[in-house]
C-alpha cells in the first residue's frame, strides 16, 4: 500500500472545467513511489484531462497537485508551501513541487515528470538518435554554456554529448532499436514508435513517467513486451509510472494500484484484485444503470 505509506503524487480536489463541461470533478488520489498506478475508466471519463493537468498542459480550475519528488513529504510542509506563492519548496526529505502552479516545460525539467502522448508525438523528421538527444536538452544546454561556449568549441559540451549518446544507446538497447538509431523516427513501424516515445521520455531521467495509452494499437506480442519493459522501468530504474490504459491485460497484470474514473469522478481506488470485483467499476464499464443488477454481476464474478 505504498500509495498510502509513501505517496509521490498527491492529487487533491482536482477540478477542470471547459466552459460548461465539467471534465474532472473534485478528484483526489495519490500515486505511490515505485508503483505502477493505472488510471482507467470508460471513454470520455476525463483521464487524459487529468494527465494534462498533472503535466501542466492544462491549468486546473481548482485543486492542488503536490509532487514529493525526493521522498515522503509531511502534510505540514505541503500546506506551508501552498500558503506561499512559490512553486517549489523543501521538506526534510527533499524537494516538493506544486505542479498546478508550474508551466509544462518546468514540470518536466525540474519536477522530473515526463509523459508520452495518446497519439504518438515523435520528431518524425529527426533520427531515432536525435529524438533521444533532444530529450536531454537541459543538461546539454548547460554543458554548452547556454550555446555560447559550445559555439566557440570550448567547455565540456563534447564530453557531455558523448555521455548523452551513451545514454541514448543504453535505451535503444533496452527497446531493441539500436540497429535503427540513424533512421528517421517517422520511418519506424507503429509499435517501435510507441517504445521509442517511452525511451525518449526515459532519457530525461524522470521520477514519474505518465504514459497515455501505451498499449493502444499494439498486437498481443508487443503488448507482452511492453509489460516487461514497464516492469523493468519500475524495478530497475526506480521510476514510478502513472498510466492510462484500456487494455485490461496490461492493467491487471502489471499495476500495483488502480484508480477508476467515470464522468470525471473517482468511483474506485485500490489494488487490481479489489478493482476487478468492484460493482461500481463493472457497472461503469458494462453500462449497467441499475445498482442491483450491478451487484448481481459482481456476485457472479466473485
Amino acid at each position: 500500500m505504498r500509495w498510502q505509506s509513501d505517496p509521490l503524487l498527491h492529487v487533491e480536489h482536482l477540478t477542470m472545467r471547459f466552459g460548461g463541461i465539467l471534465a474532472v470533478n473534485d478528484l483526489s488520489f495519490t500515486a505511490g513511489r515505485g508503483d505502477i498506478t493505472a488510471l482507467i475508466g470508460p471513454n470520455g471519463a476525463g483521464k487524459t484531462t487529468v494527465f494534462n493537468c498533472i503535466t501542466g498542459f492544462y491549468k486546473p480550475t481548482e485543486g492542488r497537485i503536490a509532487f514529493a519528488r525526493d521522498g515522503r513529504a509531511a502534510d505540514a510542509d505541503v500546506a506551508a508551501l501552498t500558503q506561499t506563492s512559490k512553486r517549489h519548496g523543501r521538506s526534510a526529505s527533499g524537494d516538493i513541487y506544486l505542479l498546478e502552479r508550474m508551466p509544462d516545460f518546468e514540470i518536466s525539467a525540474q519536477a522530473k515528470v515526463a509523459r508520452t502522448f495518446q497519439n504518438i508525438r515523435l520528431f518524425q523528421g529527426m533520427t531515432v538518435l536525435e529524438n533521444l538527444i533532444v530529450a536531454q536538452h537541459n543538461p546539454l544546454m548547460q554543458a554548452s554554456g547556454w550555446t555560447l561556449l559550445g559555439l566557440l568549441g570550448v567547455g565540456p559540451y563534447r564530453a557531455r554529448e558523448r555521455d548523452a549518446i551513451e545514454k541514448a544507446k543504453f535505451w535503444l538497447n533496452k527497446i531493441n532499436l539500436l540497429e535503427r538509431a540513424d533512421d528517421a523516427a517517422g520511418d519506424l513501424p507503429y509499435g517501435d514508435q510507441r517504445r521509442l516515445e517511452i525511451a525518449r521520455a526515459m532519457c530525461m531521467d524522470p521520477v514519474l513517467l505518465c504514459l497515455d495509452e501505451p498499449a493502444a494499437g499494439l498486437n498481443p506480442r508487443e503488448t507482452a513486451d511492453l509489460n516487461t519493459l514497464l516492469c523493468m522501468l519500475r524495478d530497475e530504474q526506480n521510476t514510478s509510472l502513472l498510466l492510462i490504459e484500456h487494455d485490461m491485460n496490461v492493467v491487471m497484470q502489471i499495476s500495483d494500484h488502480v484508480v477508476v474514473l467515470d464522468y470525471g469522478t473517482k468511483i474506485a481506488d485500490g489494488a487490481p484484485a479489489a478493482i476487478r470485483s468492484d460493482p461500481k467499476v463493472i457497472a461503469a464499464y458494462l453500462g449497467v444503470a441499475d445498482e442491483e443488477e450491478a451487484q448481481a454481476v459482481a456476485g457472479d464474478r466473485t
Binding site: 503535466t55 498542459f57 509544462d104 516545460f105 518546468e106 518536466s108 525539467a109 525540474q110 515526463a114 509523459r115 502522448f117 508525438r121 515523435l122 520528431f123 518524425q124 523528421g125 529527426m126 533532444v134 530529450a135 536538452h137 537541459n138 525518449r200 521520455a201 530525461m204
Partner: peptide
C-alpha cells in the same frame, strides 16, 4: 519545427 507540444513535454522552454 517538428512538434512543439512534444518539445514542452521534454522540458524545452
Amino acid at each position: 519545427r517538428e512538434d512543439e507540444i512534444a518539445c514542452r513535454s521534454l522540458g524545452i522552454n
